[in-house]
Amino acid sequence: MGEITKFYGITVKIFFTGYNPPHFQALYDDTLGIFKIDTLEMVEGDLTDIAQSLVKEWAEKYKTDLMEMWDSKTLKKLPPLE
């Protein structure tokens, strides 16, 4: 699992093997959210509504990059939410 970015105390990471559908993880303090790349829906986890909103705002900007990473299994750093 590799770190993609960090912002406002949230760390975004991605797994490439053994998991479908394409997704990424966001960690904030002791909470975790797993988000589908295509819909940005949190499908598992306990992130607060505010943290979910920040993650979705960031992911909307980089949805294409996230899918390209998933498809190519190539990790790259992305800019944080500003």
Rank of each mutant, 00 (worst) to 15 (best):
Asp71Met: 03
Asp49Asn: 12
Thr39Gln: 00
Ile37Asp: 00
Lys61Met: 14
Tyr62Ile: 10
Asp46Tyr: 07
Tyr28Met: 15
Ile50Gly: 06
Gly9Pro: 10
Gly9Met: 04
Glu41Arg: 08
Lys63Tyr: 05
Met42Gly: 00
Lys63Asp: 00
Pro79Ala: 09
Leu81Gly: 04
Leu54Gln: 15
Thr11Pro: 02
Ala51Lys: 09
Glu41Asn: 00
Lys76Cys: 07
Trp70Pro: 00
Lys76Met: 14
Trp58His: 00
Phe35His: 02
Lys63Phe: 05
Ala59Asp: 02
Lys73Gln: 10
Thr48Tyr: 06
Lys36Pro: 02
Glu41Trp: 02
Trp58Lys: 03
Ile10Asn: 01
Thr31Tyr: 03
Ile10Phe: 01
Asp46Thr: 07
Leu40Pro: 01
Thr48Lys: 03
Glu44Val: 02
Lys61Val: 13
Thr31Met: 14
Lys6Pro: 01
Glu68Cys: 02
Pro79Cys: 11
Ile4Arg: 02
Trp58Glu: 00
Ser72Tyr: 01
Phe7Gln: 08
Leu78Asp: 08
Pro21Gly: 04
Phe35Trp: 03
Lys13Val: 10
Ile10Pro: 05
Pro22Arg: 04
Met67Lys: 07
Met42Cys: 12
Phe7Glu: 07
Leu32Thr: 11
Asn20Ser: 14
Phe15Asn: 10
Ile10Tyr: 02
Leu40Gln: 06
Leu54Arg: 15
Pro21Glu: 01
Tyr62His: 14
Gly18Asn: 14
Asp30Lys: 15
Asp46Ala: 09
Asp30Met: 09
Tyr8Glu: 15
Lys6Asn: 13
Leu81Tyr: 13
Leu75Ala: 07
Lys56Glu: 13
Leu47Asp: 08
Asn20Phe: 07
Met1Ser: 11
Tyr8Ser: 15
Val43Asn: 05
Ala26Glu: 05
Asp71Phe: 00
Ile50Lys: 11
Ala51His: 09
Met69Gly: 02
Leu47Pro: 00
Gly33Phe: 07
Gly9His: 01
Ile50Cys: 06
Leu32Val: 13
Gly33Lys: 03
Asp38Trp: 04
Ile14Leu: 12
Tyr28Gly: 13
Ala51Pro: 09
Gly2Arg: 09
Glu44Phe: 06
Ser53Asn: 12
Lys63Leu: 09
Gly2Pro: 12
Trp70Met: 00
Lys56Arg: 15
Ala59Val: 04
Met67Trp: 03
Ile50Glu: 13
Glu82Lys: 15
Asn20His: 11
Pro21Cys: 08
Phe16Lys: 08
Glu82Thr: 12
